[in-house]
Design a protein around this nucleic acid. Structure first.
Lengths: 333, 333
DNA sequence: AAGTTAGCACGTAACGTTTCGCGGTGTCTA
DNA sequence: TAGACACCGCGAAACGTTACGTGCTAACTT
């Protein structure tokens, strides 16, 4: 593996000059040519470890996700990677399922220059100490106890959007399937939803409200239960992708026709939504935008531009998007 | 950021002893306790850059994927990450869309210890030079010109499996939608498929064969064309996920009922498959296994175990799995 | 034409770790 | 009980790069 020294031997220049060239600073034209020739001949690449050791920047950031099983996660990774590549920054992906305590620590010892994280509960303390060393940008789950930058969905508005849609179609017997309120997204989407209903004078009956872990089975079982009721709801809102998928499966199993017999508003999964009959109406996060904004924000922090931390974290809420389909039909109550 | 020196000051030990401790080698019990106490007090973590500079191992591997837009890619990332985490190895994800030449080079200058790659055309040369520095394990796309380890799907058998299924259900007017033959998976799946048909005396009529880029639109448009034919096929095999998704959308638009009016065998996307009515019959890759095997193989290469390179690359082909659904029905020809 | 200044290249000292060879201590063997 | 050996700690020298302070050259200014 070639080093500056090899280039020095080829060109007769000093290490300092060679370093300057590889850091984009100006160098005499003749030297530039010589260095480039030598570098090409030797297939030279600056050693990121040596570089990082000296400059205290690794050219690497970490993305911490509670799991890696969902289109949201992939889109985040893709968006961050694309946004940061032009700056020459590589992305280390770290899944942090419950039980894996030290994910953030692993990244810190890899000397990442920054972190983008979905702050699941068991990472919060680690993230707090990480914040003392590197900029941290949160996404998806709000963690109020962490006073740092974040790009989130406006979850309450998203929930309200779903409620308004169903109300506008005449629905009154409306059900909700959501995750545990301990997850901020779920708490906010649910409260945005129920509050909007309440404003319209429609109370969400407790038997029409299901909560459970954010897995397909929860959606499936909750909807099965709803559909078996004598007085079953005419419309259902699923507050997350897995729940939506479970709901779809349950409705298909029941033999009821989507839209015609039961209205459904899903969440995310725009790809899935267009493959069902009829197409599923969903509230979709602008996942790509979240990724890009988080990456750009982190990059500005790394540059040292942007407002000073920790005095003024940047927190943005992006609006959800309504992707219309045919799974919500009008009813006359 | 604390360093060995700080621990040295706290404990009075030498750097060498501290280094030994952090590399899992034996140290006097009393020293162990002292080091652990000091490390905890200082929130110390070994600096991966310094470590890597000296030991020439970064504790990092790269995963190169042509894109990041598909459940396959996410599952690969997740599987590799999970398999390597126990070994303390982090995963750098690099998308290598056409036009981005230097993806592999970026990883090399990050000093990754190894690479797992889906070798898209424009990366092949870079991978060849990378192989001289670090072990490279290929997945998904076979690149015969690269003489190195690989874990692949047995694509020909997967194609044959789809053909056999359709034949067994009595289909004779059978159509195929696949990607360009320049992609090895597509070439092999298609040939496995057509050869199995030919063995049964069923020739694949050229008008029943569609080829195009691996995007949803190709599947959609091809199937629309098939369905509009006077003598339309009774069954269709889509050789990849995007094509399958496009097919589903086109069938839904046509008003034909899946299974009943037109049989469809899809590829991958087991999650999508269970949400359609009826459930989609698909040939699925054991993506998780591919990821795990590739990661394990790479890890053995890093350990120095496993057969010596480049003399004897390890190449494995895993069988596809038939995930039955209701989208293939019997016809009497 | 002399004085000033900007632009570059240079040598050298870090950065935080691992590795190497050496020497000291305690334990086992005969 | 003496000798051998295993174990472990130590100091110092790398690893490949960047940053700092100097000193040189060449291009302006008046």
């Amino acid at each position: 593996m070639a080093t500056y020294k090899d280039i020095q031997r080829e060109t007769g220049l000093s290490l300092a000059t060679i370093s300057k060239y590889f850091n984009g600073r100006t160098v005499l034209e003749s030297n530039r040519v010589a260095i480039e020739a030598a570098a090409a001949a030797l297939d030279f690449r600056p050693n990121a470890m040596a570089r990082g050791l000296r400059s205290r920047r690794s050219g690497t950031i970490g993305v911490v996700l509670p799991a890696l099983n969902n289109d949201f996660h992939l889109t985040i990774i893709a968006g961050v990677e694309a946004a940061l590549r032009s700056a020459g920054i590589s992305v280390i992906v770290a899944a942090s399922p419950s039980g894996q305590e030290d994910t953030v620590g692993l990244l810190l010892s890899q000397m990442v220059d920054g972190i983008i994280a979905v702050p699941s509960g068991h990472d919060i303390e680690a993230l707090r100490t990480a914040m003392q060393r590197v900029p941290v940008v949160l996404i998806d789950w709000e963690a109020d106890e962490l006073h740092t930058d974040g790009i989130f969905l406006d979850n309450a508005a998203a929930g309200a959007m779903a409620a308004r849609l169903l109300l506008d179609h005449g629905h009154r017997r409306i059900a909700l399937v959501a995750g545990p309120p301990s997850v901020s997204t779920m708490r906010l989407r649910a409260s945005g939803f129920t509050e909007r209903l309440a404003e319209a004078g429609v109370a969400l009956s407790p038997e029409y409200e299901a909560r459970g872990p954010l897995v397909v089975r929860t959606g499936h079982d909750s909807i099965s239960r709803f559909l078996a009721m004598r007085d079953r709801p005419t419309a259902i809102f699923c507050a997350n992708y897995e729940l939506t998928l479970g709901a779809l499966i349950a409705i298909n199993e029941s033999g009821l026709r989507l839209g015609r017999d039961i209205s459904l508003v899903g969440f995310d999964g725009a790809e899935l939504a267009q493959a069902t009959v009829p197409r599923l109406t969903v509230i979709a996060q602008p996942t790509q935008d979240i990724a890009t904004e988080a990456a750009d924000l982190l990059r500005r922090r790394l540059d040292g531009s942007g407002p000073p931390l920790p005095r003024s974290p940047v927190v943005r809420f992006l609006p959800a998007q309504l992707v219309p389909g045919g799974s919500v039909e009008r009813v006359n109550d």
